[in-house]
Amino acid sequence: MAARRGILARIRKAQGRDGEEPTAAELAAVREAIARHEVGPQPPFAHAPDRLAQFRKECDRLGTTHATVSSLAEVPAEVARYLAAGALAPAVAGWGEFAGLDWAGAGIGYRNRPADANDATGLTGCFCAIAETGTLLLLSSPAAPKLNALLPETHVCVVRAARILDTMEEAFALMRSEAGEPPRATFFVSGPSRTADIEQTIVIGAHGPYRVHAVIVP
């Protein structure tokens, strides 16, 4: 605790404020500034007239593949098509939210559980998506483990079209209204993992997935 006292006192002395700790009035002023949640200027393309097109364009740029289906019930067939096209095994470790779909009918083994190191494909939903950057936003919870989006070499994510927003600021506002506060992990995924650490050459597939596929449903 001596360190805390020392640091705070040094800050105050350097900036010409008396005392060793912030006063109640100073803290109240900080909270007030925070509560304004001032939004800064945003690039023009963040509010594209065709939001879905902007989302798809940014996904393409990041290497996130995407497909659009006409109902949630069609997701298993789309996942089967995607896995077969990539010569990937027809098995996924997925969230409970999607366990009730007809996976067996599409020839896919569905494991309703958090992914482990041996799963080749993980399936998740998302809290929302962000068109400005082609980003999927996942909020962690007991029903939404992050591992399914992280450990497997392939990550398939179900995105509801109505939950595609323009910007990160809008996503934060929605999170405040629906969840109150950020959960333990607020996870923004923008394409497959990559590195450019050797000779600044981009290589897809560093520690996270090699492939990210978004299935857009109404």
Partner: peptide, 24 residues
């Protein structure tokens, strides 16, 4: 940093895992 519009991962971490959570 490198001309990227966004990095592949941005992760906000708030507190340790909750009871019943599988990871964290």
């Amino acid at each position: 940093a490198i001309g990227q519009t966004v990095t592949n991962y941005l992760t906000l971490t708030t507190g340790p895992k909750m009871p019943d959570e599988a990871d964290g």
